[in-house]
Design a protein around this nucleic acid. Sequence first.
DNA 1: CCTTTAATAGTCACTGTGACTATAAACAGG
DNA 2: CCTGTTTATAGTCACAGTGACTATTAAAGG
Lengths: 246, 246
Amino acid sequence: MSGAVDPGYDPHAFEPFAVTVDLAVFTVRGGALHVLLIRRGQEPYAGSWALPGGFVLPRESAETAARRELAEETGLPEQVVAALHLEQLRTYSEPDRDPRMRVVSVAFTALVPDLPEPAAEGGGDAAQARWLPLGEVPDLAFDHAVILADARMRIRSKLEYTCLATAFCPPEFTLGELLAVYETVWDTVLDRPNFRRKVLTTPGFVEAVPGAARLTGGRGKPAALYRAGPATALHPPLLRPEGPTP
Amino acid sequence: MSGAVDPGYDPHAFEPFAVTVDLAVFTVRGGALHVLLIRRGQEPYAGSWALPGGFVLPRESAETAARRELAEETGLPEQVVAALHLEQLRTYSEPDRDPRMRVVSVAFTALVPDLPEPAAEGGGDAAQARWLPLGEVPDLAFDHAVILADARMRIRSKLEYTCLATAFCPPEFTLGELLAVYETVWDTVLDRPNFRRKVLTTPGFVEAVPGAARLTGGRGKPAALYRAGPATALHPPLLRPEGPTP
DNA sequence: CCTTTAATAGTCACTGTGACTATAAACAGG
DNA sequence: CCTGTTTATAGTCACAGTGACTATTAAAGG
């Protein structure tokens, strides 16, 4: 616990820890799950791709730092960043994960709708930011490949028993778009009518927008629009077809 | 990420962070969920109860530190501690959670069978360690009440979709004991035959110990013995009666 | 118009579960 | 030794939720 040992503990007595945050920010675009990556400008791993993130400042919590870094590196307005779904994933603390010094990193997962185009240059850190499909992600700096894999597993399983999928959608969406989120994240094909039945009979998952409908890219019958409902958990869950973690 | 900013970063340049681990160690004893607490010997919060834990050493990962602290403060043999179920809960990083300095704490949850009697004195830190039923937990030091509440919520929901409940049982156990784990953690009463059917038809949840049986405290028909099976996830899950988090 | 595409409606069989009844095997006490 | 109590184990029945499928509706395009 915080201070079982503390004989007049001197903060500068030994090599200190640095604390950082790393962000695995996902979006669904064009039928593929994308993750936000930045290209590193400095050593170590200069030129490599990495997850966005940075140091936690002395008066910040890890979550505050995560939102600040995300705003800086994506150029999204603070207000948008303040509202989006951000969730702690886990903390990575292997002693040699950073070659320079002891760095403990708190990793977060964020889900955003497709809309925001990278707009990376706002940050100023000269690092370029891009959305990359998971299939095209190159080797990453530090242990970020592990973090990314953990984050992916986490969201795959969270879609099963939470209403998180709506975080990938714009404020108003069609059930076809929501279906596409599930199919993309799980990399499966779901039965459309069954999916519809499940979503609509789960209380609080989605709410119909009265009278609204949208033409789905020109083809087919217009779809009704829905908003995310107040529910956060799915009882019973919406299990994906195959095993727990294919 | 770990080092987007790093202009020849000087480790001693600013007030450093300390990194600690906190442990929420649970056991089921006598129909009540118990948590392991220690009484603090020093300020701050001297005399208060707190979760066991301590500083992460310069060459340790958080998980290594958690196992070491647990061994020190419970007196359990290293070998037992090395094998038990330990899982990262989340990291607590509010700037003022420790009045002395900036402390970021990685919290863990551990589940142990009833057997180990506190045996706290082995540690030497003079702090006394005790198992307390959750209903009798007093005010805790720092933000440990929050950590404990989070840990409790986590294990309650993990019993639903993982095989974790066996971690509360000795190596060989009866289905009645496993049932008691669920009933204690969820604070509900489950139908015995239905529970039995569910556990036995879930592949890999438990394995029968051939020919073995145990007298259940003298009363009633002897029960067959089982061991934990290889499965880790429960598909479909074993949902608790009421809402998601009562 | 007729075809294509996607949304929406509805059907049917099966699986898993909740509620419940029945039997078996130990012990306690008269 | 019989009887009641306790706990384990076996089995039944009805219903909810789901997977697989078929049918209909409403748009766009040639």
